[in-house]
Simulated scan of single mutants.
Amino acid sequence: MRPAAVFFDLDGTLVDTAPDFVVVLNQLLQEAGRPALSDAAIRSQVSNGARALVTLGFGLTPEDADFGTHLDRLLACYEARLAVDSALFPGMDKVLAALEAEQIPWGIVTNKPERFTTPLLSGLGLAERCGPVICPDHVRLRKPDPEGLLIAAQQAGVAPEQCLYVGDHLRDIEAGRAAGMRTVAALFGYLDPNEDPRAWHADVYIETAAQLLPLIAANKDSPA
């Protein structure tokens, strides 16, 4: 069924933001006299947020006295580096162009705070192109709660069951299913090596962004 709207998770799904996180975290580790981490190790935790990166890099938990200091420093350095090396995932530009050509609205539902999301989208030239952008600032409960997805569908003027939601984390698929949307698991995203995404029970699994194109074009002459 051709979707009436497509919504994306941000980090690890629509945009590859890991390169900027790699630079920032390893810079902070160097300043602290700690060894640098591999790109792969950092990428696997980006979707889990800045707190997970502090834990990964410094071996701290939120209960530790220094955790907040490291977290604030990480966020400040990341904010200063937004969109330097971040970019759409390969093939995603063609997906967005196809959506726009078909006049299918697309938007973003993310757990990334608006403080970072808005300037990132502006820096990538996406702010004027996308429809609803739902951040934790706009909801009472973040993903895996479906609230953000339901708000996005409402803003787009479409029924949730006519939408696709694309994400690279279990919480994305859980949120999409709870909202009644068809779910797509992005296997090119920031997957934790200890997780089996096939156990998420997404409706569709894609290895590349380009594999979204047939989903967009499906039954294009019939109602969504």
Rank of each mutant, 00 (worst) to 15 (best):
F116R: 00
V22I: 13
H70V: 04
I42P: 03
S44Q: 14
A98H: 03
E114D: 13
Q30N: 14
N48M: 10
A36H: 04
K112R: 00
V23C: 03
V95K: 09
I104F: 01
M92D: 01
V109G: 09
D93M: 01
A80V: 09
P62K: 08
V95Q: 00
R43N: 11
D39L: 12
A65H: 13
D16L: 01
R115I: 08
V84T: 13
T117W: 02
V22C: 07
D16N: 14
I42N: 05
P62Y: 05
F21R: 08
L96S: 09
P62D: 12
A36E: 13
F58K: 08
E102D: 14
V15L: 12
G68E: 15
R51M: 12
V22K: 07
N48A: 11
A52E: 11
V84K: 07
D39T: 14
F116N: 00
L74I: 10
P19M: 00
A87V: 05
A80D: 14
G68N: 15
V95F: 02
V109T: 08
L60F: 03
V46N: 07
F116Y: 10
Q103S: 13
A18H: 03
I108N: 03
R115V: 11
D72K: 14
V109L: 01
L37Q: 10
L124R: 09
F58C: 11
D16W: 04
P35E: 07
Q27W: 05
L82V: 12
A65E: 15
L99Q: 01
S122M: 13
Q45I: 10
A40Q: 15
L56C: 12
D93C: 00
D85A: 14
T118Y: 05
G49R: 06
D64G: 10
L71S: 12
R115C: 09
P35C: 13
C77L: 14
F116D: 07
A40D: 15
A76S: 14
T118D: 02
D66F: 09
L99D: 00
Q103I: 00
D72A: 15
V46F: 04
G91I: 02
A65G: 04
A41C: 02
E100W: 08
T118K: 06
T61K: 15
D16F: 02
R73Q: 14
P113I: 07
L37S: 10
A50Q: 10
L37F: 05
A83M: 05
A40G: 11
D85M: 02
D66P: 11
L124P: 09
